[in-house]
C-alpha cells in the first residue's frame, strides 16, 4: 500500500510541478523573489561606480536586517501565499479539482503530493533568490576580502543558515497557507490574520510564540539584526527569547506536521462548489 501511495504522490508532484512553476497566475511570485535581488544588485553597482570602500560589517548587518524584514516577512510570506493557496483554490477556479477527487487517490495522498510540489517550487525559487541576493550584496568587495570572510569569518555558515532559514520558511508558511487554502475561500482573511499574528508574535506570551513560523525562523538567523533600523522594524526584529537550532528545526517541523494533519482532515471532508467561486 505504501508503494502505491508513494507512486501516486510522485505522479501528483509531476503533474503539479508544471502548474506551480510555469503558470501565468504565478508569474508575480518570480517578480517577488527578484525584487530583493534588484536592491542588492543596485547596491553593488552603485558602490562600484562610486569607487569608495564599503564597510563589510555594515553591509553584513544591512543584509541581516533586510533578510529578516523583507525576505522572511514579506517576499517569502506572500510568495508562499501565492504558491500554496493556489494549490487547491486555483484548481477550484479552473474547475478541475473534481478530476483529482474522482480518481482513486486518497485525499491525504493528494494533499501530500500537492504540498511537495508547492514546496519544491517555493524552495527552488526563494532559496535561489536568497543565495543570489547574498552574492550580489558582496559582489563589489575584492576577491581577497570575500575569501577571507568565507574562510575565517563564518561566511559559509552564514550563507547556509540563510538558505536553511528560507527552506524552513517555505516549509512552515507553505503548510499554513495550504491549510488556509483548504479552509477558506478568500485568501485575504488568512493572509491578514497570519501577517498580524506574525508581526505581534514578539509581544505574545512565550507559549503562544511557539505557534508561529517567524519565531523559529528568527531564532535560526545567523546574525541578530542591529537595533539601528528604525522603531517599526526593530519592533519586528526583536527576539527576546530565541530557541536553540536543535529545538527550532524540530519545532518547526513538528508545527508543520500538525498543520498538515489538520489540512488533511479538512481535505478529507472537502466538497466542491464551483459556482460560489
Amino acid at each position: 500500500m505504501k508503494t502505491l501511495w508513494l507512486t501516486q504522490v510522485a505522479a501528483i508532484v509531476r503533474l503539479e510541478i508544471g502548474k506551480t512553476f510555469f503558470s501565468r497566475r504565478g508569474l508575480w511570485v518570480y517578480l517577488l523573489a527578484c525584487m530583493p535581488m534588484v536592491i542588492f544588485g543596485g547596491h553593488s553597482i552603485v558602490w562600484l561606480k562610486r569607487g569608495l570602500p564599503c564597510d563589510f560589517g555594515h553591509d553584513t548587518n544591512v543584509f541581516a536586517s533586510i533578510f529578516q524584514v523583507l525576505d522572511m516577512r514579506l517576499t517569502l510570506f506572500f510568495g508562499c501565499l501565492g504558491i500554496f493557496m493556489n494549490l487547491f483554490r486555483g484548481e477550484m477556479l479552473d474547475r478541475s479539482l473534481h478530476f483529482y477527487f474522482l480518481s482513486p487517490v486518497r485525499r491525504e495522498v493528494l494533499l501530500v503530493g500537492k504540498y511537495l510540489a508547492g514546496l519544491l517550487a517555493a524552495v527552488t525559487i526563494f532559496t535561489t533568490s536568497t543565495v543570489v541576493q547574498w552574492g550580489l550584496m558582496y559582489a563589489h568587495f575584492p576577491k581577497s576580502v570575500m575569501e577571507s570572510y568565507l574562510r575565517d569569518g563564518n561566511g559559509w555558515r552564514h550563507l547556509t543558515a540563510y538558505a536553511g532559514v528560507t527552506v524552513l520558511g517555505c516549509i512552515g508558511y507553505g503548510s499554513v497557507f495550504l491549510l488556509a487554502g483548504a479552509l477558506m475561500k478568500n485568501p485575504i482573511v488568512p493572509a491578514a490574520a497570519v501577517l498580524v499574528w506574525e508581526s505581534i508574535n514578539s509581544f505574545a506570551p512565550a507559549v503562544l510564540q511557539k505557534f508561529s513560523v517567524i519565531y523559529y525562523l528568527k531564532s535560526l538567523c545567523p546574525i541578530e539584526a542591529p537595533p539601528d533600523v528604525g522603531p517599526v522594524f526593530s519592533m519586528l526584529l526583536v527576539n527576546a527569547d530565541p530557541v536553540a537550532p536543535a529545538v527550532a528545526v524540530p519545532g518547526m517541523l513538528l508545527f508543520t506536521m500538525l498543520v498538515l494533519v489538520v489540512a488533511a482532515m479538512r481535505v478529507r471532508k472537502m466538497e466542491i462548489h464551483y459556482g460560489t467561486d
Partner: peptide
C-alpha cells in the same frame, strides 16, 4: 502595500 513598504526601506538602507 506591504511589500512596497519593505522594498522602500530596504532600498534606503542598502543604497
Amino acid at each position: 502595500n506591504f511589500v512596497t513598504s519593505g522594498f522602500a526601506a530596504a532600498l534606503n538602507a542598502t543604497m
